[in-house]
Design a protein around this nucleic acid. Structure first.
Lengths: 160, 160
DNA sequence: GTTCTTGCAAACCCTTTGCACGTCT
DNA sequence: AGACGTGCAAAGGGTTTGCAAGAAC
């Protein structure tokens, strides 16, 4: 519950992200507000998938008050400038994560226990590229979602 | 606007779908209501992606009144019995389509003009299978979404 | 000082639910 | 007759928006 550790960042270069964000804000004539940078800080701390509301709760628990409106707005900016990617898993609310947390990865989800497993599959990049080329489009990003069930659903250790 | 054509179905075997639906309803002890079969009829007529609300509007324009509650409920049944697949594209509401309209396919979407291009890529099945196996899960289904932009965004014929 | 951003609450969209009425079995 | 399904409207969750107060430029 304590959040004394203010500089987690292992492979994660938070300063580079802040610079990227600052560049984006300057270019688009948005302002450098404390809230925007604090939100980015907390996201880096989290270092996992999160929904807007999870971030809101996390920040308010950590003492960094931020309104939902500001969080949604900032998440959108971070998404637009490529720092965050936004996922929509099945029936759920939107989930975000740092784009550079794992170079390129997709998601395997268990319909039974709800856990989300990340994986890398470089072949998907090439498939996406070819399909775009065949249709006269330029690829921006892709999302491969696999829905599955545990081999042994009764004994799944993740099932609630 | 007229809907005189009551038997469109080219490659689409509507009778087989109705039988599949009837079997499902019987097995699950659900009732054979007129609404449920009318909804399936209209979906077959549409023969494309649609949202619950688009179907609601379409049916009411066609004179087949059906409430949103019934449409949502029936879409869920059709999804559960495998006749419909449900997609969640980026920020949009859920979209449905007939599962057997195209054997197995995924979606390429243009962020600029919003059009959705369907494609088949059998290699994805094998990738999904391997990744599930590596994680001790059984694949149920998968969804590969490619987000892209037109090569020439200014002259995109689909852009509004 | 002006303009943009924040925070709050209300509005909004999509979807689900409660309840009275209608329909299937 | 009894149970389930329908339709309506209201509630629900997630997200966006309008407006007044505050911060950035």
């Amino acid at each position: 519950m304590s959040t004394a550790n203010d500089t987690p960042a292992e492979a994660l270069d938070l300063d580079a992200l802040k610079k990227q964000f600052a560049d984006f804000l300057r270019e688009k004539m948005y302002r450098n507000t404390q809230e925007r940078y604090r939100i980015l800080d907390r996201i880096a701390e989290l270092d996992r998938h999160f929904s807007a509301d999870e971030l809101y709760v996390y920040m308010n628990n950590a003492g960094d008050k931020a309104s939902r409106a500001t969080i949604y707005s900032t998440l959108d900016l971070l998404n637009k400038c490529g720092i965050l990617v936004k996922h929509r898993f099945q029936g759920e609310s939107a989930h975000f994560e740092l784009a550079n947390r794992m170079p390129h990865h997709d998601h395997l989800m268990c319909n039974e226990c709800g856990r989300i497993i990340e994986f890398r599959e470089p072949a998907l990049d090439e498939i996406a590229r070819q399909i775009c080329e065949a249709n006269g489009l330029k690829p921006v990003e892709h999302s491969f979602q696999i829905f599955a069930v545990c081999n042994d659903t009764l004994n799944c250790e993740f099932n609630k």
